[in-house]
Design a protein around this nucleic acid. Structure first.
Lengths: 241, 241
DNA sequence: CGCAACGTTGAAATTCCTCAATTCACGTGG
DNA sequence: CCACGTGAATTGAGGAATTTCAACGTTGCG
C-alpha cells in the first residue's frame, strides 16, 4: 500500500474512503455491498468542536467516520471526564448505545469530519439476511471490547512513559493501516486530551514527550510527530514497574 | 425479590439459575426459549483455579456462568497481568474472542463453578431467525463495552479509595440484582486480585479497606464484607482529585 | 501443630500531580 | 507585515498519593 504523510491529501482515488475497507465485510458480492450501502443514512459534516451526539441522546444509528478525527468521552457525575478513545476514518462510533438505547458518551469532532450514519434497525434487519454482515457487526463490537480491555491494562499497570509509548504506537499502527505513514503524523488532540485518555495530567504527557525526544526516540514539535525508533518505543513499554 | 446473604444456598427453586433471567431475552415465547436452550452445549464443572479457557485458545463458544465466580485476565508480554473483570452467575464470558476467533484473555475459576457452553455458530444462526435473540446478543456485547469504559474511567481518573468504593458498590449491585444481599457478601478474590483489577497494589487495597473500616463505612473481616454506609461509599467516589 | 498463603501495617522511596512561571504558536487586527 | 493577545505547551520546584520493601499477624489445611 502506498504511503504518504498523514495530512496532505492522499493521492489514490478512494483512499480516503475507508468505509468499504473497514466498515463492511470483505466477502460480500457486488449486489450485497450495494444493499448494505443502500441503507447508509445521511452524511454529517461536522466542524471542529461539534458534537456528533451527546451522552443521553436517544440511540438510532451507528456512525462510520468517513474523514476526520473525533474523540469519545464519558463524564463522571462530579464533572471529571475521561476520553475513552479517538476515532479516525473507518472507525465505527456508537456501539456503547445499543445496550440502553441511549448514548453513553459524548462524541466530539477534533477536526472537520465527514460522518456516515448507519441506521441501526435497518442494519439489524439486513444482518439477519446476510450472515457475513452479521458476523462483521459482531466482530466490530468484539474488537471494541478487546481494544477497551487493552486500554484497561494500559491504565491499570503501565507507568506514564509506557502509556504514552503505547499510545503513539497504536496511532502509528492505525495510520499505517489506512495507508498513511506509520512514523510521521499530526496529533489531532491536545496534551490535555492525550492525558485524559491515558489517565495522566497534561504536564506529565509533555514531560514524557520531552524525555522521548531527549532519548532520540521521537522528534516532536508541538503536534507534528516523527517516530524515530519504533523498537525503542516498544521496548520502553516493557520496563517493569 | 427475596434477599439473603450471599453464600448460604438460596432458597427459591431456580434462583441459582440466572441463565434465563440474564442470558436470554425476556420476550421470547415458551417454544422460542426451548429452541434457544436446545442449543446450550455441555456444562463445565470447574474447580477453583481451573481455566475455562486460555488466551490464544480457538474460539468456538461463549460461556454463561451458571454458578460460581470467575476472573478474566490479560497478560502483557513482560508478564504483568491485569484482571479485566470478575464474572458471576448470569454473566457471559468470551465475547472478546469473536473478533479474532481466538480468546484474548484467560478465564479462571475463583471458586467451584458450573458453566454452560453456548456454541457460537449456532447462536449466530438462531439469532438470524429470532430478532429478539439477535437484539439481546447485541445488547450483551454493548453492555460489556459500557462496563469496560466505566472501568477505564475508574482507572484513569479515580484515586485509590474511590476505586475501591466503586468496586464494592458494583459488587453490591450485582449481588442485589441476583437476589442476594446488597450489603453483606463474601469477596471471592484476594487483595492482590482486587488490586490487579483496580490498578493498585495489594497493600494499597488493604489500607483502603482499613480506612473504610475506621470511617465506619464498612465492616470487613478478611473476605467477609458488610457495607454499613452505602451513601458514604458513594460520596467518597466524588471527592475530586 | 506447623506450614504456607494471605492480609495488615509501618517507613522509605518513587512517581506523578499541583502550582507557577515562561515560552511558543497562531490567528486577528492594525 | 508586524504587534498583540490568547490558548497551548514546556519546564521547574515542591508536595501528595501510591508503591516498594520489610516485618509481623492471621487463617486454614495437611
Amino acid at each position: 500500500m502506498q504511503q504518504y504523510v498523514a495530512h496532505p491529501q492522499p493521492k489514490s482515488p478512494c483512499s480516503t474512503c475507508h468505509l468499504r475497507e473497514f466498515c463492511l465485510p470483505q466477502d460480500l458480492s457486488e449486489s450485497e455491498v450495494a444493499r448494505v450501502e443502500a441503507l447508509f443514512g445521511p452524511r454529517h459534516a461536522l466542524k471542529r468542536g461539534d458534537f456528533l451526539f451527546r451522552s443521553g441522546d436517544r440511540f438510532a444509528a451507528l456512525y462510520a467516520v468517513h474523514t476526520g478525527f473525533l474523540k469519545t468521552q464519558i463524564l463522571h457525575e462530579d464533572g471529571r471526564e475521561h476520553i475513552t478513545g479517538f476515532q479516525m476514518a473507518g472507525d465505527i462510533i456508537g456501539m456503547d448505545a445499543i445496550n440502553s438505547a441511549t448514548h453513553a458518551c459524548d462524541a466530539i469532532a477534533l477536526e472537520d469530519c465527514d460522518i456516515c450514519e448507519l441506521p441501526y434497525e435497518q442494519l439489524e434487519t439486513l444482518s439477519r439476511e446476510l450472515p457475513s454482515l452479521q458476523r462483521h457487526l459482531h466482530r466490530l463490537m468484539s474488537r471494541e471490547i478487546v481494544r477497551d480491555q487493552q486500554v484497561m491494562m494500559l491504565l491499570g499497570s503501565m507507568r506514564a512513559e509506557e502509556r504514552l509509548a503505547s499510545f503513539l504506537l497504536d496511532l502509528s499502527e492505525r495510520f499505517a493501516a489506512r495507508g498513511y505513514s506509520a512514523s510521521q503524523f499530526q496529533l489531532r488532540m491536545s496534551r490535555e486530551e492525550i492525558g485524559s485518555h491515558l489517565g495522566l495530567k497534561l504536564e506529565t504527557v509533555s514531560r514524557a514527550f520531552s524525555h522521548f525526544q531527549e532519548g532520540g526516540l521521537i522528534d516532536i514539535h508541538v503536534r507534528s510527530v516523527h517516530l524515530l525508533d519504533l523498537n525503542g518505543l516498544h521496548d520502553c513499554m516493557h520496563r517493569p514497574r
